[in-house]
């Protein structure tokens, strides 16, 4: 699953623009992740701050 490190996230929306599924949305200062996320990790790669991480399901 995609983990948002909210202490690192600067809510800029860079990740939202590259998500091929449209699974991310920036709502003011909160990044939301929808169920259609496929854990592809594209967002985690482009994040300028390193706030996103694909982690194993707990």
């Amino acid at each position: 699953m995609l983990k948002v490190h909210r202490d690192i996230c600067g809510y800029c929306g860079c990740c939202v623009s590259v998500c091929p599924e449209g699974a991310l949305e920036l709502i003011d200062a909160y990044l939301s992740v929808e169920k259609n996320c496929t854990n592809c990790g594209v967002c985690a790669k482009v994040c300028p701050l390193g706030a996103l991480e694909v982690v194993d399901e707990e």
């Binding site: 800029c12 929306g13 860079c14 939202v16 623009s17 590259v18 998500c19 091929p20 449209g22 949305e25 920036l26 594209v42 790669k45 482009v46 994040c47 300028p48 701050l49």
Partner: peptide, 24 residues
């Protein structure tokens, strides 16, 4: 840049990874 509205209307707005400038 974080546009969602047109995507909800059926238009693909995805930016290719190599063409997003990751910026600080």
């Amino acid at each position: 840049v974080e546009s969602k509205f047109s995507r909800w209307c059926g238009i693909d707005t995805t930016v290719p990874v190599r063409e997003i400038m990751s910026s600080v």
